[in-house]
Design a protein around this nucleic acid. Structure first.
Lengths: 158, 158
DNA sequence: CGAGTATAGTTGTATATGCAACTACTTGTC
DNA sequence: GACAAGTAGTTGCATATACAACTATACTCG
């Protein structure tokens, strides 16, 4: 009563067990779990969706708290269309505002507002607590540094 | 814009520059870029969405190529509702099939079909090529092992 | 300068996903 | 054995996002 193609796994010839495939899967899974749990925590504690937090964080890190739409889209790894809508919502909520770019009339500057900064502070507090509970408990400071180096390599262009 | 170790932060007292916050951001960003590029490649080469690939891979890795709905939901980190719909689509495409679970009439067994196995083989081929281009070029075998260990720790319960 | 190409952002549309409510079954307790 | 509580999966609904087509502006090269 089993008509799966009798292929059983764990054989070394089966590429689903390939070391790189496993590593990649682990990366996706780890990330998915962490994003989800952080997202839930931010949403329940601060009423702030994770992508909103991400945008606000990118803005704060940028010089002048200001980025162009396409820079945001790239930084948060969304499509430009998706970013337009996301910024619409953030603007509607009063956390950011669009401004014309004086040097390029096609471009839009997105700036974080005072309200956005306040919300971000609140969320960062929650985030720091989250990291203490979930990151610092699992990885030592040395391990975290190593992980950061490896991820930076992995994320680097070619 | 990428996170790099030398990135300037607005103020040293600003927690957006906290080492853990940066690491976490790097993890999310790296993952988002990789998922997106792998997803595009799988979709264009094999016409297989990344979540479908993920399900098929989980099934192949499981004993008997068979998992219950909630095991799939957990493995791929989706909600159970989302998983129901995802499996609907996979079943419709003929890559998996639902079977009754003999020991628990609430549960559903999801089994990979021959067609699903064939598609997975095809996709794994693409995936292996992808990993050669994107993983092996950036991280040595040692580094990959280290990364896998760190991610496993990070992903571990408690 | 003007035509052609490239770039920034928005919008229409389709779809995938999450959440909460629901049904059906199982397990534990008295 | 029956009732309460827990668990597996599905469904209605809302929403976030991607993709592709589109508009408007900037750049380039004859």
């Amino acid at each position: 009563m089993r008509y799966t193609s009798g292929m059983t796994i764990q054989s070394s010839s089966c590429p689903s067990g390939d070391e790189k495939v496993q590593l990649f899967g682990l990366l996706l899974e780890t990330n998915a779990r962490l994003s989800r749990s952080l997202g839930l925590e931010l949403e329940s504690s601060c009423d702030l969706p994770l992508p909103w937090f991400d945008v606000l964080l990118q803005l704060r890190r940028s010089p002048d708290g200001l980025l162009k739409m396409n820079q945001i889209a790239d930084a948060i790894v969304h499509s430009t269309g998706g970013t337009t809508r996301l910024i619409d919502r953030l603007e509607e909520a009063g956390f950011v505002e669009r401004r014309n770019c004086p040097s390029d009339r096609r471009a839009i500057h997105v700036a974080i507002t005072d309200k956005g900064n306040a919300k971000l502070d609140e969320a960062l507090n929650v985030h720091l607590g989250y990291l203490d509970n979930n990151l610092a408990t699992r990885l030592s400071s040395d391990e975290r540094r190593t992980l950061a180096e490896l991820l930076a390599k992995l994320n680097s262009p070619l």
